[in-house]
C-alpha cells in the first residue's frame, strides 16, 4: 500500500488569547484565554485526491492549512506529508507543498510577473522554465497579457486571486493547499479557478486539499469531504456518502447544506455570524 499524501494523527492546536478584563483597572494584567483551534483531528488523504474541508469561519480550517504549511507547530499529534513529518522534516515538506490562501498576499506594488518571479526563485526554479510556465498558467486562468506587468494594487480582487492561484500552481506542488481560493470571486472567475483545479488534478500527479465554506464548490470538486466544526471533524465521507446521512426532506435530494445543518444543528450563515 502506498504512503498517503497526508496523514494527521490526533492533532491538537490551542492558542492563547490575552484579553483585558473590563471589570478591572486599565493597567491590570490581561487575562489569558485558551482557544481550541483543532481538537484531536485525525484524517488521511490519498494521493491524487481532492479532499475538501468544509466548515464556517473560525472552525479550524485555516489553522489546519497553516499546520500543513509548516507555519504552525502542533501542540499534540503528528502530521505527515508523503511520509515526512512536518515538524522534523520541515524542508522536505516545504518542497512538496504550495498554498493559495483566501486573501491574495503579494507585494502590492510589484507586477504579477515580479511576484511570480520572486516565488519561482524562492522555490529554486530555473528562470527560463519558470517564465514560460507563468505565462501559460496566467493565460489559462483568463488573465490578459497586458496585465502581467501592471502593479497588483491596480488589479481587481478576482484578478489578484487568479495570480495567487497561478503562484500556487507554478511550482508544481505534489500537495496543493487551497484555503478558500474562490471566496469573494465573481461567478466567472470562480468557474475559471475551479476548472483549473480539475485540470491540474487530471494532468498532474497532484493531491489537493481544499478548504471552503462554499457547499456547492465542495460538492462539485471534492472526492471526499470532512466537515469541521469548533476544531473537531464531525463527519468525513464522499459527497454522496455525506448526503446519505440525511434523509430526503420536502421531496428534494439532500444537499451538503442540509448535511451541515443536520450535523451541527445550525446553518452555515449562523455559524459565520457567531
Amino acid at each position: 500500500m502506498s504512503t498517503p499524501a497526508l496523514e494527521l494523527n490526533q492533532v491538537c492546536k490551542v492558542f492563547t488569547k490575552k484579553e483585558r478584563d473590563k471589570t478591572k483597572a486599565r493597567f491590570a494584567p490581561k487575562k489569558r484565554e485558551k482557544v481550541i483551534a483543532l481538537d484531536d483531528v485525525s484524517l488521511s488523504v490519498n494521493r491524487r485526491e481532492i479532499f475538501g474541508v468544509l466548515g464556517p469561519n473560525g472552525s479550524g480550517k485555516s489553522t489546519l492549512i497553516r499546520l500543513l504549511s509548516t507555519l504552525l507547530i502542533p501542540d499534540k499529534g503528528t502530521i505527515r506529508v508523503f511520509g515526512h513529518d512536518v515538524e522534523k522534516e520541515e524542508f522536505a515538506v516545504k518542497r512538496l507543498i504550495n498554498r493559495v490562501s483566501v486573501d491574495a498576499a503579494f507585494f502590492k506594488k510589484f507586477s504579477p510577473l515580479e511576484n511570480l518571479t520572486y516565488a519561482a526563485r524562492l522555490y529554486g526554479m530555473p528562470m527560463r522554465e519558470a517564465r514560460e510556465k507563468m505565462r501559460q498558467i496566467m493565460l489559462r486562468l483568463g488573465l490578459k497579457e497586458e496585465t502581467f506587468n501592471q502593479p497588483m494594487e491596480h488589479m481587481s480582487r478576482g484578478m489578484q486571486q487568479k495570480v495567487a492561484v497561478a503562484r500556487g500552481f507554478l511550482t508544481s506542488p505534489t500537495l496543493l493547499l487551497l484555503d478558500e481560493p474562490t471566496t469573494g470571486l465573481d461567478p466567472h472567475s470562480k468557474r475559471d479557478v475551479q476548472g483549473f483545479v480539475r485540470q491540474i488534478r487530471a494532468e498532474h500527479d497532484a493531491t489537493i486539499l481544499l478548504t471552503t465554506h462554499d457547499m456547492e464548490e465542495a460538492d462539485r470538486l471534492c472526492d471526499r469531504i470532512a466537515i469541521i466544526d469548533e476544531g473537531k471533524i464531525i463527519a468525513l465521507d464522499t459527497p454522496k456518502g455525506l448526503k446519505e446521512l440525511v434523509s430526503k426532506r420536502n421531496g428534494h435530494e439532500p444537499t451538503l447544506e442540509d448535511v451541515f445543518i443536520e450535523l451541527t444543528g445550525k446553518k452555515m450563515e449562523e455559524k459565520e455570524a457567531e
Binding site: 509548516t70 524542508f91 490562501s101 486573501d103 498576499a105 503579494f106 524562492l122 529554486g124
Partner: peptide, 14 residues
C-alpha cells in the same frame, strides 16, 4: 507590511 510573511516562511529556503 506587505502581507507576504506566511508565503516567504513556507517557501523551501533556509
Amino acid at each position: 507590511w506587505e502581507g507576504t510573511i506566511e508565503y516567504t516562511f513556507m517557501a523551501p529556503v533556509s
